[in-house]
Design a protein around this nucleic acid. Structure first.
Lengths: 270, 270
DNA sequence: GCAAAAGTGTTAGACGTACACCCATGG
DNA sequence: CCATGGGTGTACGTCTAACACTTTTGC
């Protein structure tokens, strides 16, 4: 798979880029299963000119990785996600451009329903369902699949679910989201009970009528449910082989034994 | 936490480094709980000269990230881990050295019992138990904690367990490893049953006598158990904003729906 | 009343946990 | 025969899947 045509420029410092996968829940269609959606941008340069690709760009030296991801993502798609998590870093020399090695730090992001609606159609940005993607530039397809895999395995995190479904929500909406991500049918009755028994939700008191049937109760996540969540996916600290004056101990966060406590970049704004 | 003294060199391309956390199971002590161990190297340069730190170095442009991690790790500690997985990439500008931004791709690695024994003592490399670490350079402590957290959450992976315990193994050894990583007592009887019922193990036919009691049966992991394992943590593909001729579809691997099929770098040699 | 979705109940099996118990072995 | 760990049995509570059922609404 890797071709070994490394040129003589190999000793130049590698380029560092940032690439993002943005995920959202497809707006409700009439009597259809809701799917996962992601925006792609059309490439305006070679290589892969005209093909669809993930938003990305070079790492700005005066920005953190998260900031760079957020900015390139916002400037190309006009979306302002509330959730941003590092996915993986790719750095094979076979990916070099003209012999200059390329390192790409990939992120995945979540945007809610409201943000999806606000995105006005552009020629160079378009939404695609996860099961109906066009051919993608580079190997962005693999990155998308990896992001979807991560999403499925983060589904038990209230943080993730909340960003996708938006608050407040009905249990049916939550259920639809679960089915969209898992890609399989889930018993509604059991899902209700599990969610209510989890203690993560609280009723808002409001109701929502979506069709012409009985209205459904609205819920939100309890404040405490979002705090610990049992997983410190996003280290707050930073590191380097040469790093000046950075001996601050990592802040240990609350309940769980999460080593890299504060999730600085998970929830960007609230 | 971030100090804003970004110098005028901000537009230089960022340096890219690779850092690794190597984990192993502490050799059996007489009647003591076995703990997790990791080797640290003493810094021979400023900053943090003389302090303990994780092995690391610059990314070689003609090497993949995994190869770079493996080589710097091998050259500094003389260890040849069989498992190597990307952990996280740190890139805050506050971590810059002399104004040149620093991006560090971190890996975690596993070495088995045999490898630990073969490592002859050096002045600049030493093992430390996970609950008795010295002060570390930079914020390497946070990285170690994060690696340990990852390890605890990868414990259900036969690949991970196998590398730490070494084959063949008795159920008691497996159990001891589990307790070491989880940091809590686990019922031996139930652990036995769960493991045997999982279908991941097969008897070698051999037995091992560790004390003066009844010898224990030896097991190994079934070949198939290591294949799918339900999690494609390590993408095989590569990516870049500028990438030449890289439109190969990702190979989808077997049983599960793992998107980035082949775990190229998880198991380095077998 | 009818359709459709909200919401509740019930049951049977799978699974985890605690703990008692027998077996094999060397001293 | 005894101490120690290897290995088995069992009973109980919890969780979950499956599915029948009642309630609320608009037409």
């Amino acid at each position: 798979m890797n071709r070994g045509n490394v040129s003589e420029r190999r000793h130049e410092p590698p380029q560092v880029g940032v690439t993002s996968v943005i995920l959202a829940l497809e707006p409700a269609r009439e009597h259809g299963r809701r799917r996962l959606w992601l925006p792609l941008v059309r490439r305006v340069r070679e290589p892969f000119l005209g093909q669809w690709a993930l938003p990305g760009g070079p790492l700005r030296a005066d920005r953190s990785l998260e900031q760079s991801a957020y900015e390139t993502l916002a400037s190309t798609t006009d979306l302002r996600p509330r959730y941003l998590e590092q996915l993986y870093t790719f750095g094979d020399p076979a990916r070099s451009r003209g012999g200059v090695p390329m390192v790409s730090v990939c992120y995945w992001a979540l945007v809610g329903q409201a943000d999806v609606a606000q995105l006005e159609p552009r020629h160079n940005v378009q939404w695609f369902a996860d099961d109906d993607l066009p051919p993608l530039a580079f190997d962005h397809r693999a990155i998308v699949d990896y992001a979807l895999w991560r999403l499925r395995h983060r589904m038990d995190s209230p943080r993730v679910v909340r960003q996708l479904v938006g608050e407040p929500f009905t249990l049916r909406q939550l259920h639809a989201l679960t089915e969209a991500i898992r890609g399989e049918r889930v018993d509604v009755a059991n899902y209700r009970r599990r969610m209510l028994a989890s203690g993560l939700l609280e009723e808002t008191g409001g109701v929502l009528r979506e069709g012409r049937q009985r209205p459904a109760a609205l819920y939100r996540f309890r404040p405490g449910a979002l705090d610990d969540a049992g997983a410190p996916w996003l280290p707050a600290g930073c590191e380097g082989e040469q790093l000046e004056h950075m001996n601050t101990a990592p802040e240990r966060a609350s309940a769980d034994d999460n080593p890299l406590g504060s999730l600085t970049t998970a929830l960007l704004h609230d």
